[in-house]
């Protein structure tokens, strides 16, 4: 973000400047500490953890713990759970973007009877996540024979309006002149959509992809309900299944290695798409 033209009028260097940094650093440390601790725990042996206080610096069991987690796990190898999570997250992100681009386009650019009705119908779902209707949705999925399947994991989570709403807001900021110009030039609606609207929405789509990928990856309750088969567990819900029932001591190094593995893909997506993501956010705020 170019901010070179800011004068010293508003910002002074001095005590305040260093206090600003100090405040931010404390914030960063607070945010980071739990992740750091999990990472440390994933590199030490069980003995070091069960005798508190645990060390604060990584140990030498990194390879052992991660190999154990990835290829044997507790119930099912974590590698399998990672694959399940990936399929689910991609399915949700892509599916939702496609259907909501189409419906936002329809709602904004076409005048048809019941337009408001459909908008409100879709809008209503915005605030009612799958958690509210778990029992009946579970039964629907069970009736379709979609338990323990990827489509069962994906479809109910696509049925919400967040993305439609965002695209609608964005399309409404696109000047009408563009649509008119396209019409004057003889473009049919779908051509306008493909050649003008879609390229213009690139950053929004990218931003939304990041958000939805993480949303999908981080789902917990829904996979918990419909994947009774450990082979279909996603990694985020699988972690909890790794805790022993009763009084046994949990296998903390392996559990923490799994936690770290569960964080890595979404973190990579966020960090690598950060620029695009934030640009999309700022654009949509204007």
């Amino acid at each position: 973000m170019p901010r070179a033209n800011e004068s010293g009028m508003v910002r002074k260097r001095g005590v305040g400047y260093w206090l600003t940094h100090l405040g931010l650093i404390i914030g960063v440390l607070f945010i980071f500490f739990p992740i750091w601790l999990a990472f440390v725990a994933s590199t030490v042996s069980q003995q070091e953890i069960v005798r508190p206080p645990m060390p604060l610096w990584p140990g030498d069991q990194f390879i052992e713990n991660y190999t154990a987690a990835l290829f044997s796990g507790v119930n099912v190898p974590v590698a399998k759970m990672l694959l399940n999570s990936l399929i689910m997250a991609l399915g949700i992100a892509l599916g939702k973007i496609v259907i909501s681009l189409l419906s936002a386009f329809a709602i904004v650019y076409f005048n048809f009877p019941g337009r408001r009705f459909f908008f409100w119908m879709i809008f209503l779902t915005l605030m009612l996540p799958v958690e509210v209707r778990i029992v009946p949705t579970f039964q629907v999925i069970a009736n379709f024979g979609m338990l323990n399947s990827y489509s069962g994991l994906i479809f109910p989570l696509i049925a919400s309006a967040t993305a439609t709403f965002l695209f609608r807001q964005y399309f409404m900021t696109v000047p009408d002149e563009l649509a008119e110009a396209a019409r004057v030039d003889g473009a049919r609606p779908m051509q306008f959509f493909w050649h003008i609207l879609l390229p213009m929405s690139r950053t929004n789509i990218a931003a939304l992809f990041v958000i939805l990928f993480i949303y999908g990856w981080n789902q917990y309750l829904w996979p918990l309900l419909i994947t009774t088969d450990p082979e279909m567990n996603t990694i985020v819900m699988g972690i909890r299944q790794m805790f022993p029932s009763g009084d046994d001591v949990a296998d903390w190094p392996v559990i923490m290695a799994t936690s770290i593995l569960a964080m890595i893909p979404p973190i990579i997506v966020v960090i690598s798409m950060q620029k695009l993501f934030i640009r999309g956010l700022v654009d949509s705020e204007k």
Binding site: I49, M54, I214, N218, M237
Partner: peptide, 27 residues
């Protein structure tokens, strides 16, 4: 530095904090 936890699932965040405050091993 601050956007990392955005990527951390609530359930995983739960596990991390549980680990810190666990009665037996929590630091």
């Amino acid at each position: 530095l601050l956007i990392w936890p955005y990527a951390v699932a609530p359930a995983v965040a739960g596990v991390l904090w549980l680990f810190m405050f666990n009665g037996r091993v929590g630091i």
